[in-house]
Design a protein around this nucleic acid. Sequence first.
DNA 1: TAGATTGTTAATCGATTAACAATC
DNA 2: TAGATTGTTAATCGATTAACAATC
Lengths: 214, 214
Amino acid sequence: MEQKEKKISKAIIQRLPRYYRYLGELLSQGVDRISSSDFSKLMGVTASQIRQDLNNFGGFGQQGYGYNVKNLYEEIGKILGIDRVHNIIVIGAGNFGKALAGYSDFEKRGFRIKALFDKDSTKVGKTYSGITIHPMEELRTYIADNNIEIAALTVPKAAAIELASVLKDTGIKGIWNFAHTDLNVPDSIVVENVHLSESIMRLSYNMKSRNAGS
Amino acid sequence: MEQKEKKISKAIIQRLPRYYRYLGELLSQGVDRISSSDFSKLMGVTASQIRQDLNNFGGFGQQGYGYNVKNLYEEIGKILGIDRVHNIIVIGAGNFGKALAGYSDFEKRGFRIKALFDKDSTKVGKTYSGITIHPMEELRTYIADNNIEIAALTVPKAAAIELASVLKDTGIKGIWNFAHTDLNVPDSIVVENVHLSESIMRLSYNMKSRNAGS
DNA sequence: TAGATTGTTAATCGATTAACAATC
DNA sequence: TAGATTGTTAATCGATTAACAATC
């Protein structure tokens, strides 16, 4: 009998990985406890926000003591679902696809890129950073046979839209979308967008208003 | 005598590039006007929000008619500061740096990647997608001589922190930070972070809660 | 125990949505 | 003109901050 879960806001989810990163750094510096007040100074947020955020998931601290760094780090890891391995494929073996394949930071966090896929038959069979390029025809069977949960899409817009539709009846649970388009998927699939074009537009806007305003 | 500017919230800036993208698509489909109501259905947001957002910058619509697509597209382009060219350098000629160099979408929006930089002397002089790798020693003079406004950092954490400090007394106005760390820069420099590790952690969280919850 | 600091409730602030008069 | 739709004010909703009793 599950207790009805409180709805966690997007803003909180946005902050959790940053908490996790700072805790990881504290941990590697040998710090073993921290108060919400000290943590707030380090991160540039309010202590209230830290305590409110964490208390959505449980009481991880102790009055008069603060938070145990290692424990909190692990708890947030569990919350984020990175206490286990996630198998990933990258569809689109262009520059970005290859860059993802070669990015070792993901591996450290349990995100394992198992294969690249590309429709270009001249690329098929080649290997980047130890990851082999497969033909599109193998997509469905590869996902099923290798317990793949996440597909990163590093293909052009039109291809991404098409792939979203193909992936909906495979075992894929999450799409990491690098194409500059919104994807239509059933509720059972989660989409996380990385829209670099939008990111650089925001940079441009902020540069502009920084110089004009304050 | 400038009128005191209303503070524009982060949430609005987050949405502007998406409006811009949809307007660009409507434009290429030959649509020449749209009401906030139709636009809201297309984008999956409320019509109220669209009107409120836009009215922070001016009255771009017309009662009884709606918005002229081409006009609104151009106005938002101006707001975002992409009605002109921005010169960019990419520091770190690894996989991601090369991927950025080869990504033609930026060029279309006026973001011109002029040079790559790397500390590895064996890479210096090589060219990717027509963009040459320069040695770090040339960084300052290159920025000054080529009117560079934005530096994309595709280097490891420690190098990014160091570079942020080097860049602060050059003409650089914006840092596009791909390293998984926060950067300390003076107020005159804007930082836009692309933290892929945090992005994939959010994907993981959402996959987890999707399967548990609703 | 006394001091520190959490967990949590209450107050504030800001962002989103609704409503409607103005106007094309 | 009548109908449509904006710009904008007011109402609601949600997120952040402040305060403090609980407790280690």
